[in-house]
Amino acid sequence: MKQTFFTRTFFEISLIIAGIMLVSAAIPLFQLNDISLLNYGKTVWGIAKELATPHDLIYINPLSGEERNLFPIIFEAYFNSMKIFFLALIISLFISVFLLVLYFSVSERIKKSIEGIGYVISSLPDIFIIGIFQIFIVWFFKRTGILILDVAATMGNPIVLLPAITLSVLPTFFFFILMVTILKEEEEMSYVELAKSKGLRKYRILFMHMMRNVLISLTNHGKHIMWLMLSNLLMLEYLYNVFGVTPFLFSYGEPSIFAVTSIFIFLPFFMLLKILEFTFERRIGSDMNL
C-alpha cells in the first residue's frame, strides 16, 4: 500500500511537470511565424535541456532589461509569495470557522440570509475585491489622514499583511459556504443523533465530532481552492507591486523560466495535498484522490 502510494505520487508529479513543460512550450508558438509541430517539439526539447542545468538560467527583467542569474533571486521572490499565500490561507480558515460558529448559533431565518450573503460574496470577482480595498484605503486616508499601509507597516511587514488580508476575503466565504453545505449533510448522520440523544451539548458536538469531518471533507476541494487562490495571488502581487513570482511568469520570451517558476509554484501545493491525502487515508481509511 505504502509503496504504491509513493510510486503513484512520483508518477503523477513527473507527469504534471511534463504537462507544465508542454504548456510552457506552447507560449512562444505565436511569436514564430510558422506554427508547426516540429517547432513545438524543438521548444519542448530546449526547455528540457535548460531545466537539466538550472543554474545556467538567466532572467532578464522585462522593465529594466537587467540580466541576472535566475537562481538566488527567484527564492526571495518565491518566499514572499508563499508567505502571502499561506498567511491568507490561515486567516481565511480561522475566520470561516469563526463564521461557522456564528452561523451555528443563530436562528433558522438568519441562517438563510447569512447563507445568501455568503454565496453572493464568494462569487464576486477577485478584481472587484481588490478595487474596493483600494478605494476604501483612499477614502479612509481622505477622511482620517491615516494611511492603512503605514498602520500595517508598524504591525509587521506591510507588503505581506495587506495583500494577505485582501487575498483571504474570497477563500473565507468560499470555505464558509462549503462548510455550511457539508455541515448540513453531517447533521443528518446517525452519530450526531446519537450524540444529541446522549445529551451532549451543541458546541461539544460541533467542535469535537462534526468539525473534524467537515475539515476532512473540505480538503476534497483542495485543488479547486488552490486554483482560485493562485490566480488571485498573482493578480494581487501585480497590483500591489509586491516582489513575488509574478514578474518571472511574465517573461514571455523565456519559456524555460516560465516552466521553472510554474514548477516551483506547483510543487509545495501538490505535496501538501498529497500529505493530507496520505494522512487521511491512513487515519480514517477513506479513499481520496486530491
Partner: peptide, 8 residues
C-alpha cells in the same frame, strides 16, 4: 498531464 492547468 492536464492537471498542470490547475497550477498555472
Amino acid at each position: 498531464l492536464f492537471t498542470s492547468f490547475y497550477f498555472i
